[in-house]
Write a protein that binds this DNA or RNA. Structure first.
Lengths: 226, 226
DNA sequence: CGCCTGCACGGTACGCCGTACCGTCTAGGC
DNA sequence: GCCTAGACGGTACGGCGTACCGTGCAGGCG
């Protein structure tokens, strides 16, 4: 009888079986049997068959939130970068299991969607904090979302490169991550500079051959020019 | 026997039943029965119970791709804006059904994820075209993804505001959409902006042969003017 | 010691989804 | 008038996720 916890045994059994027979051909009962656990216990540990592929997701999410909670508007840039770096570092520490998961998610659409759902939770966590740093006004909602998206996109870009083996070592991955964060900051306006000036009122004449729909079109023209 | 197509009857029956009993309490068999159709036909028309909530998704996706295919690096800015505008316009045309879907997706997590999966397909379509306009080099992959994310995020922001009733009329929604696209362009570097034709503050006479195309042409006109 | 309580576990049964397969019906070409 | 293709409804099945039940084990109490 192994000393490891039931949860860990379930995860190992699941990844092994997925690698042997594939995801669809493996039933939850198979996983539970190999882990020496009942089917009920499986669903007590993981909400669904998909969730077992991302066993540390919730833990990561709380770690991110904790890191972001210590940042202020002044330290926002380094805060989001480090919070995203937590995720990257976790995958680097995971090593081979991370790459097995990558192969799995590549080949199983349901797992791809599950992964995206998790990523979206990261985005929302970033979004909430960034929006707070921007003042919490409704006008800055869009901007906070743009920044959060950009940070997570930059992180995922580097993570995927490492998972594919395009970045050999962990330190190389971390260096690429810093470069990606710099590129994100260069393309997305993180500090507060104002938007471009509104367009000047230029004279224009629209001549419409068919005046029948003019009443319907005029409001559009008006709010376009005004 | 109704004259409407089976597909349309299925969609109507589904939305009605979802509103009456809720999503989870409605089975596929219920929907098929009310639509006067066999359960098999339901799954022939829609891949899953979730897909029936977004019946026009594939059609919209191809419309976006078609619009983007006609753009060049020079007209990229107006191209992405109009392609995203197609989605907004579709929802505006849909009217009450769009708002029923919004209430549904708000309350059913599975539908939220399904919607996000669809949005992600939009993003990928934008991504491919933008990446091509940027030259197709691997170095511009991240930038293309950032831009695609930003455009889709801006669109969704306005769409949600309209769905919530914060934007009363369709023209108000379209104006907010143009403002959001402008904000997106001000925060991220969209290609084609620097290559746009220089503006000359001169009066112009525009003769449109077919006034029905005005909605499609106005953003280009605006781009030429300023 | 015996008993009671709480809790995690395994087992069982069920509803439903999504798929595969079947026979039937109808439109349209030869 | 016949024949083939394709859409349809019906049926059966595997599997997921949930609800519920009984069991075993640890620990507090008289």
């Amino acid at each position: 009888m192994p000393e490891s916890s039931a949860r860990e045994r379930i995860v190992d059994a699941a990844f092994d079986l997925f690698a042997e027979r594939g995801y669809d051909a493996t039933t939850v009962e198979d996983i539970a049997a190999r882990a020496g656990v009942g089917r009920t216990t499986f669903f007590r540990q993981f909400r669904s068959k998909e969730h077992v592929v991302f066993p540390d997701h919730e833990q990561l999410l709380t770690a991110i939130a904790a890191r972001l909670a210590t940042a202020t508007p002044r330290t926002a840039v380094v805060g989001v970068s480090e919070a995203a770096g937590l995720v990257l570092q976790h995958y680097l520490d995971e090593g081979e299991r991370a790459r097995r998961r990558y192969r799995l998610t590549r080949s199983v659409p349901a797992l791809q969607e599950r992964e995206r759902a998790g990523i979206r939770q990261y985005e929302r966590t970033f979004n909430r904090h960034i929006h707070g740093w921007l003042g919490g006004a409704p006008e800055s909602l869009l901007r906070a979302e743009l920044i959060a998206n950009a940070v997570v996109t930059g992180h995922n870009h580097v993570l995927r490169a490492w998972l594919r083996g395009q970045l050999a070592t962990a330190s190389e991955a971390r260096r690429a991550f810093r470069a990606a964060m710099a590129e994100v900051e260069s393309h997305v306006d993180v500090p507060g500079r104002e938007a471009a000036a509104p367009a000047e009122a230029l004279p224009a004449v629209l001549v419409l051959r068919d005046a029948g729909d003019l009443d319907r079109l005029l409001p559009q023209i008006r709010d376009l020019l005004g």
